[in-house]
Amino acid sequence: MRQGKARYIGFSEWSPQQIQAALNLANVERFVSSHPNIPCSGAEPEAQVFPLCAANGISQIVWSPLAQGVLTGKYQPGQAPPPLPLVLFKEFGNNTLNFELLVWTAEPNKQFLLKSDLYYIIYEVLQQREIEIPLAQLDLHLRSGKLELTPEMQLALIQMVERLSNQESDIDSSNPIEKGTEGIDA
């Protein structure tokens, strides 16, 4: 505070003994706020903490006044709150580390929007930190009508298409399901 980096100081969830010990210290900055947790369970700081703070000019800052949503009716009695988001490492991919993000929502009909929003936020955070995500290039799309192919390029493309066609026919010939019968129930 003397260097101007903080204007005021406070404490959170201190016992009356901790507060009194801090008040007894000489030549230190005085606390101006208390941030007590007031649980619904009955263990309440009002009886000792509030009078001690009031007598020493320490104000109270509310900590979860609605008990993290319990008092709003967000959760039914006896019902546990939804689990926190979870990130799981799934596997090593081709030049990738694959993770799965599990997030719980009360609106499952909006899961695709939620998923899209989360992916976009994750992408933005990675961009801000200058972390590049290499995207796998599986398809080649030529969109320019002005692209002139040399005879060598044309030959290379024809050979590539033939190789791919041969690979597909090799796969089809090793398939025990006869052609034309896929999806037909016997």
Results as ranks from 00 to 15, higher is better:
106 A>V: 09
101 L>A: 07
110 K>F: 04
98 N>V: 11
113 L>Y: 07
102 L>K: 14
84 L>Y: 04
96 T>Q: 08
91 E>T: 08
108 P>V: 07
115 K>N: 11
99 F>I: 02
85 P>K: 05
99 F>T: 02
98 N>G: 00
114 L>D: 08
107 E>V: 14
106 A>P: 08
92 F>L: 13
97 L>Y: 11
92 F>T: 11
88 L>C: 08
110 K>V: 02
111 Q>A: 11
116 S>P: 00
112 F>D: 15
95 N>W: 02
108 P>L: 08
107 E>D: 14
114 L>M: 10
94 N>R: 06
111 Q>Y: 10
96 T>V: 04
115 K>Y: 00
113 L>F: 05
116 S>V: 00
111 Q>G: 03
96 T>G: 00
115 K>A: 15
97 L>C: 11
85 P>E: 04
97 L>W: 08
87 V>D: 00
88 L>V: 13
97 L>R: 12
96 T>F: 01
103 V>E: 05
94 N>H: 03
87 V>N: 02
103 V>Y: 12
100 E>N: 03
105 T>Y: 05
99 F>A: 03
89 F>V: 06
109 N>Q: 15
84 L>P: 05
111 Q>E: 12
102 L>Y: 07
114 L>Y: 12
96 T>S: 10
90 K>A: 09
97 L>V: 03
111 Q>P: 00
86 L>I: 05
104 W>F: 14
86 L>E: 11
90 K>Q: 15
106 A>R: 15
85 P>C: 03
106 A>W: 13
100 E>S: 07
92 F>I: 13
114 L>V: 11
93 G>N: 03
85 P>W: 04
107 E>H: 13
87 V>Q: 02
110 K>G: 00
85 P>I: 06
94 N>Q: 08
92 F>K: 09
106 A>H: 12
110 K>W: 01
108 P>T: 09
106 A>S: 15
92 F>A: 12
90 K>W: 01
93 G>I: 03
84 L>H: 04
116 S>Q: 14
86 L>H: 08
89 F>D: 04
111 Q>F: 07
87 V>P: 02
88 L>E: 14
91 E>R: 13
88 L>W: 01
107 E>S: 15
113 L>E: 14
95 N>E: 15
97 L>P: 00
89 F>I: 03
106 A>E: 13
105 T>W: 05
86 L>S: 04
112 F>H: 14
107 E>L: 13
97 L>N: 12
115 K>D: 06
93 G>W: 01
85 P>G: 04
109 N>R: 12
104 W>C: 10
92 F>D: 07
106 A>F: 14
100 E>V: 06
108 P>Y: 07
114 L>I: 14
116 S>A: 15
115 K>C: 10
90 K>R: 15
86 L>Q: 10
106 A>T: 14
93 G>S: 02
109 N>Y: 10
95 N>Y: 08
